[in-house]
Amino acid sequence: MSCPKTHYLLQEYFSENLSAVARDELDRHLTDCVHCNAQLESVLLAQQDLQQWQEQRVPHWDRHLELFRQEHRIDRPVSRFWLSWQWLPTAASLAMLCVLLFNVNVISNDSGFSISFVGSSASGSNLNAQLADFEQAQRLEMQQLVARVEGRQDSTNVQLLQAVMEQAQQSTADSFDQMYAYFEQQRLLDLQDMRAGYEQLVDSDYETIRSLQQLVNYVGYQSDIR
């Protein structure tokens, strides 16, 4: 059974600016009219289905920040302190370049230090002599070091060899002792077996003699009866 008011009333049901009187009338009709009530229930269920939507996370994007920065000419924030010292790395590089190009030599001694631009042959030969001395000293020290290492290695090897040999001797002696004890034990066991065997044999011989004696007695007894 349908109701002619259903379409209009349900359309108005979702309106926000319905007057209080109209809302009361609508509610009353919905209570009385089964058809309208059923229709309202079903459309509200459909609306409820939609409201099950789960908000989905936004994939990563730059939010037009690059565009914003470009159009507002915003550079990355740089501290004023570092801006004021920007020249320092360049100056340091230039100073190092000059030191290399002019071969600057700084010598410090008891009376202070002196800076010279080393380029003369006298200074060059002096440097060569110093280098040769240094090389000689290094070579000597290296030889001593090698000798020390060799000596230490030899003594270590000898100790190691002695230890190995002692261990080998000890283990050999132990092995002989064990073998001797084993053979002795076997010999004793064999002797016991043999003795038991002989005793059994003697017992069986004794039994045989007794049987023969009984047989002879029986034969004698039979001949006496005849």
Partner: peptide, 17 residues
Amino acid sequence: AKTRFYSALKKLKVVSE
């Protein structure tokens, strides 16, 4: 707007069922 919304809900009701 009201009519379209109610028509949409009626259609959704059918789809949901």
